[in-house]
Every structure is written in C-alpha cells, then in structure tokens.
Amino acid sequence: MVTMQCEKIGEQFSAIVEGSLDAAMKLKVEEHLQSCTSCTSQLAELRKLWSMLDELPELSAPAGLHGDIMRSLDAAMNDARPQGGLIERLKAVFASNPRAVLAGAAAIVLLAIAPMFARNSTEASLSILPSAPTTSDVHYSASAIWLQRQTGQVQVTILAPAGQTGVANVKVDLIQNLPDSVYTSVNSVVTNVIPGQLRVVRLTGANTDDLLHYAIMVSTINRAGKSLQSTTVPILTTAVRPAP
C-alpha cells in the first residue's frame, strides 16, 4: 500500500541512486525500505532504468549531414563577414591602448556627439563601436553608441566615408543577447546613409543595468527590406568611460 511516507521517499529516489542523501535522511529511507516492499521494488526498477538510460546507444548521423551543415555555413560566410573576427580585433585594440581608437574615424564621431548628450544624462556611460564593415565594397567606418541610463536610449551614429558611391539603405537593430544564447531584436530603425555624411538613429528598449547583453546589428537592406549583409558587434565595456 502506498502511504504518505512512500510518496516522500519517492521524492528522494534519484538522490538515493546517486548516493547524495545526507546521513539523517539516509537512515530514514533505509528504515522505510526495510518494511516497504513496494518502495524497495520501485527503487530497484529505477536503478535498472538509470543504467539503461546511461547506456542508451548513440544513433549514427546521416551520411550527408556534415555536408549539409557546411554548405549552409559557406552560404552564411559568403553573406557576411564573421562577427567574431571583428570583436576580437576591437577587444585587442581597447585592451592594449584605448587611445589608439582616437586616431580612427570612430573617435571623431564620438567626440562630436558626446558633449551634446552628456548634458542630459545623469549617470551616463559611453561605448564606441568603430568600423563596422558590412560589405566588401562599402564600409561604414564609424558608429558610436551612446547609452542614456535615464531613458534606456541607445544612439547609433553611422558614417559612410566620402568616396563611396550611392545611398545605402541600412537597418539598425538593437540586439539582446539572451543568456549565452541567441539574438533577439528588441527594436530596429531603417534609414539611409549618404556617403560622407553622418546618420544618427536612436533606439529604445535596452535594459540599462544589463549593458553587456546588448549589441548593435547594422545591416544593408534592399528595396524590399530584405537584409543583404550585416554585422553585429557587442557594446565594448573596455571602452566605457564616465561622462565628461
């Protein structure tokens, strides 16, 4: 007959099999098992099940699976430059010499914008996102992210250097990196970028206490709004500095 005691013991079955019970509970369980054939037999079955689960054989992967994955990977690699390479290069730049960035176009954008926003923010932090190349022939050489803690607003500045030809349609996404996982777009803005001019877009929706888990994705899009090329770069905390 199953009793209340049996139910409580049942909650401990996995711990019993693992041997992770504390001494007091172990004693209680052993006493119960001596007088309860139902729990004893359930426990024996669970032990058997446990070892069968651990020994469940691996299935072979289909012969063409690796090829399928690599074909998709090649297509994705052709579509966009890998983000990791850029991230690593930027991290290295900031870690070795933060002032090195001042030599780049990013710093010019940043310095032009920073004072304007500093006045309105109570506890501002600043991150910069230099050179976000999006295609082989167009390079948006400077992007700055300004985060206002009061409003959770992120400002992204994009510059297509003079010399590039044509106006590019660009989509800017505020991306949240869910814990150790995939991207989700919190907010996005579509705009165009004229060579030699700055384009400023503002996005809201960032949790300002969780800056590390946000990134900006800049994509070129066609007339139908389809993303052609994109690059995603996290906010670099090594570049954070107090507001002037």
Binding site: A61, P62, L65, D68, I69, S72, L73, A76, M77, P82, Q83, G84, L86, I87, N177, D180, S181, V182, Y183, A215, T232, P234
Partner: peptide
C-alpha cells in the same frame, strides 16, 4: 537533420558572443 543544421547556423551567428564562462557543450545544447 534540420534542427542540427539550424543549430550550427546559430552557433556561427552567435559564436562572437560566447563568453566562455560556460562550457561550450552547455551553450550548444541550449
């Protein structure tokens, strides 16, 4: 098969944000 291909595509897209404070397999299975 489809899930496996999609999984590795997401790995490719997100590998830059893998911080390494978790085991790769834990991150992958997520």
């Amino acid at each position: 098969g489809d899930i496996t291909v999609d999984t590795f595509m997401r790995v490719y897209q997100a590998i830059g944000l893998f911080r390494g404070d978790a085991n790769f397999s834990t991150w992958l299975f997520r």
